[in-house]
Design a protein around this nucleic acid. Sequence first.
DNA 1: AACACGAAGTAGACAGCGTCTACAAAAGTT
DNA 2: AACTTTTGTAGACGCTGTCTACTTCGTGTT
Lengths: 182, 182
Amino acid sequence: MGTRQRLITTASELLTEEGVGAVTLRGIAKAAGVSHGAPLRHFSGRAELLSAVATQGFTELLDRRKRLPGGSPRERLTAACHSYVDFALQKPAMFELMFRRDLIDPDEPALAAVSSAVFDEFAVLVAAAGDQGGTDPRLVAASLWAALHGLAQLWLWGGLAGASFAPSPESALAVTLDAYLG
Amino acid sequence: MGTRQRLITTASELLTEEGVGAVTLRGIAKAAGVSHGAPLRHFSGRAELLSAVATQGFTELLDRRKRLPGGSPRERLTAACHSYVDFALQKPAMFELMFRRDLIDPDEPALAAVSSAVFDEFAVLVAAAGDQGGTDPRLVAASLWAALHGLAQLWLWGGLAGASFAPSPESALAVTLDAYLG
DNA sequence: AACACGAAGTAGACAGCGTCTACAAAAGTT
DNA sequence: AACTTTTGTAGACGCTGTCTACTTCGTGTT
């Protein structure tokens, strides 16, 4: 495996094991067994390396969706929604990195391509799930995606709970899906 | 105005003018006209200073809600929803800081108090807006809040748009409110 | 009035970070 | 075989947060 790929893999492992705050260029280099300057031979800077990692994250998100069990369009949509939230809860550090503008470069071509593919495929699922009462399915998809995204984000933040109330992410997701599809 | 308060104010200004990446302890000190070590006389570290700034952010969020025009419970709820998204779009850097676990300390008492007050008051609005079909209003509140939060976050991220589709935040918000209240 | 003492501010140091540059080694190309 | 491009290393620079020693200053006690 070439050094470039090893750096991406090492960074990805470091990310899931130590969290977003630990993915430093020098730390990745050390973990990969190269000098601290080596990564700059393969990436223009930290943002480009982390963008490659985030691209893998979006790709996995897309893959999970493709492996979903078939069924009615509506079932497929709810499965996709669960899949999104599950991904965020199972890989919180990766999920955080994927939306950290200060760490990655959203204009990186590969990243931009796969992240908009995530949205586009989701919009297809929404469109297939039924009539939206005249509103553009892509608009509904954007709104629903945002709802899922916020759910995952607030849960990871620890903020879904009020003073004396701590819902599970599953129950909150059920309410969300009920609002949109019920 | 004491130095402590000046540091918070300066940090807040620096935040809105230069963005989250620019709020460095040394930069704040310089902008406030004190030495780089002075802030540590008033705060245990960067996290405590930024937590104070974020606390002001949550407080303003709460204030905006209290100044909302009266009306039917449902009108008041939709106004509160708009207020949340408007705040995020008008003060993006503050909004980002408020949810950046790595920069602030969510267990800071003042911060924890005001942030859960934000949720609690929102839950009251949801409960007043009508029957939720037997589900706990706080659970609906959590789900709706997450939807608003995700909307703001994804919009600021620049990701609400697919390849050839760019909805306005207002239109997406309208769809969200329609799903929950329509 | 003299003193002591704690709070507040300063300046310097340290390790860690991202990035740049100069240099060495290795791999390909002609 | 000679030359060029790629890949890796080591050191430096300026930045960061934080720690420590030192100074300054206001206040309260004796």
